[in-house]
Amino acid sequence: MPARGRAKPSPTPMVPGSTDRKIDKLIHLMVKNATVVVPGPKIAAEIGGTRATVWKYIEKLRALGVEIKGHPASGYQLKKLPDILAPSLVKPELGDNQIGHRIVHYFRADSTNSLALEMAAQGAAHGTVVLAEEQTAGRGRLGRSWYSEKSSGIYVSVILRPPLAPSAAPVLTLMAGVAAQHAVTTVTGLSADIRWPNDVLVNGRKVCGILTEISAELDRLHAAVLGFGINVNHSKMPEELKAIATSLRIETGKPCSRAQVLVALLRELERQYQLLLEEDGAAIAERWSSASSFGEGKRVRVLTHTGEFQATTAGLDPSGALRVRRDDGRVELLVAGEIVEVK
């Protein structure tokens, strides 16, 4: 593929507000030595700081719910493996994945998509990943919010710089849906469906929502940001969401490693992206069609900005738009809008 899809290398300065490298190193060190007592001076040497700094960072981790026992004379011991998506823990699992070669982690962010869009505007490279343990203003489509409970879900945005015209970019949203469904299925064994264009559903309720935003000129796509919100370890969903949303933990009845889901997602995203580059959008649309029950013959309610109607789905066109057949036989091509299954 032409090299222009790859972003020019950019300097990687510390992003303001993102997780300190010291704390990232500390998490890595504690996890690597999970069962042993790690001496304070050793930690200080590894993360680069004084013993007082170590104390400060240990306290920070404790505040985040990581159980660390302090042994006055000898050092610190991790009592329980933390489920933190620290770059130092995730990156080694990604191998030579382009997606995730750089991970910017936040304990708390307003919205990973907003941050990723900003970074993209400043030249962040293809494959840069922005992660947050908690979002204070998680965004959905058209100003909707995304419930982003601390450390229960995966809130991640991926910056892509595909060599596509903006008009061909919408297929990226299908690609994202296919990757998320794959990650959920392989890690949990649950059977997951994709509702057009890319809501991932388990037992009819949403476990993953995806918001894709692009920055483009008329004929030039600068960057696409794929934002994923995956409900992983929520033990229950808020009352107002119960009917439409669920979590992997609720569905399987046991907690699930967020890191595993994240790694599976980023790896599958890489594979699907390669497929898109090597073949075309139609290949992605085909993948989607075989992964979703919504592509063909599904009775749905179509909600558009101008109204709603019932129809039966009649396959994707190669661009990823959904054909729906109205009851009077007319076939329409849906480019935007939402569908809901009619039961």
Binding site: R141, P170, V171, T173, N198, E213, I214, V335, A336
Partner: peptide, 14 residues
């Protein structure tokens, strides 16, 4: 904003 398949394209003034 122009939306296609949940891909949101915020159009900025040139």
């Amino acid at each position: 904003i122009i939306e296609a398949m949940k891909l949101m394209n915020e159009i900025e003034s040139e």
